[in-house]
């Protein structure tokens, strides 16, 4: 949470509870954190692989009226998960996915994925997506892109809706909000 969000958060609480009852609560102790920032440079993938992940993530979740995957730091999230969370088997699968894409690009176009024009890159990802369910490596990459995006601050608060303290639950027509909740 940013400092502005933090202030809104506390103001929102005051509106809900009244300042007197806020004082009697312990909510000020709620720790307001910042976006977890992975180390500045890539910890697992090399530059070319990072570039590929960035491109593929943006092909799957592009900039529209809201920022897309790379602006939400999805490639950094995947790199951090690969470096600090995934098993060797999982990172091998992810690496193989990128290698396969590259060798496919070489065979078909005589160039690596990152060197192709955007239309060719999209075409390659489209083919992979059509094979989803049968291509474990791609399924895994797509899953990480999706999770990385919708659990990011941009994905949750700009693309979807995020409400840390919704107040009493109620049923509403979907049109009242128009988008799914991020959490």
């Amino acid at each position: 949470m940013t400092e502005l969000d933090r202030r809104n958060f506390i103001t929102g609480l005051t509106a809900i509870l009244g300042s007197a009852s806020l004082a009697s609560l312990h909510v000020n102790a709620i720790e307001i954190g910042e976006t977890f920032k992975p180390r500045g440079k890539a910890e697992f993938f090399g530059d070319r692989e990072m570039e590929m992940i960035k491109l593929i993530a943006d092909i799957i979740i592009p900039d529209t009226d809201t920022p897309g995957a790379s602006k939400a730091g999805v490639h950094l999230y995947i790199d951090h998960m690969a470096g600090s969370w995934m098993t060797g088997e999982e990172t091998a699968l992810l690496t193989k996915c990128l290698d396969d894409i590259n060798s496919g690009a070489q065979q078909r176009h005589g160039a690596s994925f990152t060197e192709l024009d955007q239309a060719a890159q999209v075409a390659i990802v489209q083919v992979l997506d059509d094979e989803r369910g049968e291509n474990k490596a791609y399924d895994m990459l797509k899953s990480y892109i999706v999770v990385g995006y919708y659990t990011s601050e941009i994905g949750a608060t700009q693309e979807l809706l995020y409400d840390p303290i919704p107040g009493p639950h109620r049923e509403i027509p979907f049109s009242e909000v128009g988008r799914v909740w991020a959490t």
Binding site: M1, H26, A29, G33, E34, F36, W85, A156, T183
Partner: peptide, 23 residues
């Protein structure tokens, strides 16, 4: 202590692995 709940109110992006635990 009541109120000393370190992960309370944290958004997924504030967690190192977005809430996933280190296996």
């Amino acid at each position: 202590e009541h109120g000393d709940y370190v992960t309370e109110g944290k958004a997924p992006w504030e967690m190192e692995f977005r809430g996933k635990f280190d296996r």
